[in-house]
């Protein structure tokens, strides 16, 4: 029973980790919290849904399509709501507020187009179960979710560590002015960070839609808030922290449902958050220095 819960928790946690990785990538490079990320995640889920219902394409194609669509949206977000604020004398809270504006805009637009109720996501993965160690079952869907999430996180890690773009991203994260002096095009690197983060969010949206068989305009709120809690718990700007925090939250939630009751599920993330803030304010993988926002 316990290990079954752990498997379920890890599956939920994998999608949390993907959402949180998007937040942490944007925060690491641009030093802002992208409050519109949750809604880009939701739009990604709807793109996946339209692709599956419209063309009947396989899951991987739906994920890829959602990533492309969400990435494009991320690019527009950076150009219209973030880049104009990157000038002298603008309060550091301005991007936070402008992305809240974009998030309200996207959510109400989705409500207008798709209606407020949740839409069924067709079961596009065969309902097949595999038995592990006798008592624990894992479904094909869970394998697909875990596999795609793992592949995306590894791809992100490799990209950051091994490629020229990854090096530029890390340089801008370290110090935008110095990176600019070294010949890095800071504006396009920042745009690339938002596009990549949004693509990860879009992929997570499709996976969550598959997981719960449902997509709705308000599905982003809970995931967004949890993603924010995760990046503080894991340590701001750390991809490893986002993944660890996501998996931890997934497992903690499932165990809380099993042993306390399902109604407190949405509070688990913030109870962990407040506990971590009391013990280690810089987060599990965070640096020790002061946390100036």
């Amino acid at each position: 029973m316990f290990w079954q819960q752990v498997i379920n928790g890890l599956t939920a946690g994998a999608t949390y980790a993907l959402v949180a990785a998007g937040y942490t990538l944007v925060f690491g490079v641009l030093e802002i919290i992208n409050m519109a990320h949750a809604e880009i995640f939701m739009i990604g889920a709807f793109i996946g849904l339209l692709l599956v219902t419209g063309t009947g394409c396989p899951v991987w194609a739906a994920v890829a399509g959602a990533m492309a669509g969400a990435g494009l949206l991320g690019w527009a977000l950076e150009r219209l709501a973030l880049r104009p604020l990157r000038k002298q004398g603008v309060s550091h809270l301005a991007p936070l507020i402008s992305t809240i504006g974009v998030s309200i805009f996207l959510m109400s637009l989705a409500m207008k187009i798709f209606g407020p109720q949740s839409v069924r996501f067709p079961a596009s993965v065969e309902p097949r179960f595999f038995n592990l160690f006798g008592t624990v079952n894992i479904s094909l869907l869970q394998i697909v979710i875990l596999g795609i999430s793992l592949a995306l996180v590894v791809a992100l890690k490799v990209l950051l560590a091994r490629t020229r773009l990854g090096k530029a991203l890390r340089a801008v994260a370290e110090n935008p002015e110095a990176a600019g002096l070294m010949g890095v095009n800071v504006n396009s690197v920042m745009a690339a960070a938002v596009v990549m983060a949004s693509a990860l969010g879009g992929a997570a949206g499709v996976l969550v839609g598959l997981q719960f068989n449902a997509v709705s305009p308000t599905m982003g709120i809970a995931y967004g808030l949890k993603g924010l809690a995760i990046i503080i718990v894991g340590g701001m700007g750390s991809v490893a922290g986002a993944v660890a925090g996501g998996l931890l939250l997934g497992a903690a939630e499932v165990l809380a449902i099993a042993y306390i009751g399902s109604s407190y599920r949405d509070a688990v993330a913030f109870i962990i958050l407040i506990a971590v803030l009391l013990i280690k304010p810089s987060g599990i993988f965070g640096k020790l220095e002061g946390r100036k926002g």
Binding site: L85, I97, V102, I104, L106
Partner: peptide
């Protein structure tokens, strides 16, 4: 409202 908020910041 959403568009207004984002535009306001710009």
């Amino acid at each position: 409202f959403g568009a207004l908020l984002a535009a306001m910041m710009v």
